[in-house]
Design a protein around this nucleic acid. Sequence first.
DNA 1: GTTAGCATGTAAGGAGTTACATGATTTT
DNA 2: AAAATCATGTAACTCCTTACATGCTAAC
Lengths: 197, 197
Amino acid sequence: MAKTDVLTLAILGILNEQPLHGYQIRKRLGAQLGPFRALSYGSLYPCLRRMVDADLITATGEEPAASAPASSRRARIAYGLTDSGRERLAQELASAGASSWDDDAFDVRFSLFTHTDSATRLRILEGRRTRLTERLDEVSEGLKRMHERHDAYTAELQRHGLEQVEREVEWLDQLIENERSATGGDNNHGTADAGQD
Amino acid sequence: MAKTDVLTLAILGILNEQPLHGYQIRKRLGAQLGPFRALSYGSLYPCLRRMVDADLITATGEEPAASAPASSRRARIAYGLTDSGRERLAQELASAGASSWDDDAFDVRFSLFTHTDSATRLRILEGRRTRLTERLDEVSEGLKRMHERHDAYTAELQRHGLEQVEREVEWLDQLIENERSATGGDNNHGTADAGQD
DNA sequence: GTTAGCATGTAAGGAGTTACATGATTTT
DNA sequence: AAAATCATGTAACTCCTTACATGCTAAC
């Protein structure tokens, strides 16, 4: 099973809704994953190229119709998923490995939750939660063993960092709770939206 | 004026207090900048090498004393600042350019605030605050222009991201206020701790 | 005596950015 | 007609990680 990196997955998710140009993919990515995470073209286009080579997407050059042959517009390439790409996306959406809750992967997986089944959503949220609390523990351990104490500013930086992580954990707790109560009911939407129809 | 990257600055700051081995520098870095940010040796040692070449630090091999010539212990290298290194650190601590409030540089600068004068601290905090509110604005703009709406999960991710940034701004506001009231008084400690004594 | 932690390094490679190079379309 | 935005791409470079290679020292 070929490895799918985070960027590839994000693009697969975006193109699942509709074919788009490279430029538009970039904007979408920026809009979905926040103000940061704005990817450069120097990263995007080579990735699209690789995806075409791997037969996950097709590049459709907009060929000027017979109507206006004179104004041959510059290549505007629309990228769309192949069957193979749709299959790969479905595969990834059903998985919940460590790479789903890494710092850089979690938000991409989360932004695809509408197309993920409830059980997988829960596993990812819990995995992420465990990852964060592990970190919290590491810091506490580190603080205990630290012989040389921090100055006031360094301590404040540390305190603030811990607080941010704690809040993230609370956020996850809420989401997990919601997910659990929804599962008890009837709501399990989107299970196979990415699959074959 | 030679450019000082973030890692170099962090090391300069750590070695200003006492000479340390590479291994210890790494631990310190991890302890000061949080559980993440743990640097690999593959990054650290080449940087130390560059710093030695640039005459910012000296590498002192621990030579076995006459007492125990048999157990010639493996090279344990203590790194310490040169005068040139101390000068460079003082220079950096007095500056407050854009590179002081970038995501990856801000916490390093902050962890050195004890050795930074009050005016510079204030400028850095304000610069960081401006950077963050600019981001907040960008997102709002983006949301306004977005035609295709987000699904519930993507919206939640966005909301949470904004909330985290807002909290960071509140944190900065507190720090800025503290800094202002302290300046009014007498407190301006540490101004030239890194300078010549 | 064996595991865990201390200690130093190199080589290969991954994932991304910046700067460059080009040109079309829409808005002001 | 100028400016902004849409649009595609490449080459060089930066920064960092992983995997490897080596060996000492303290604790259990």
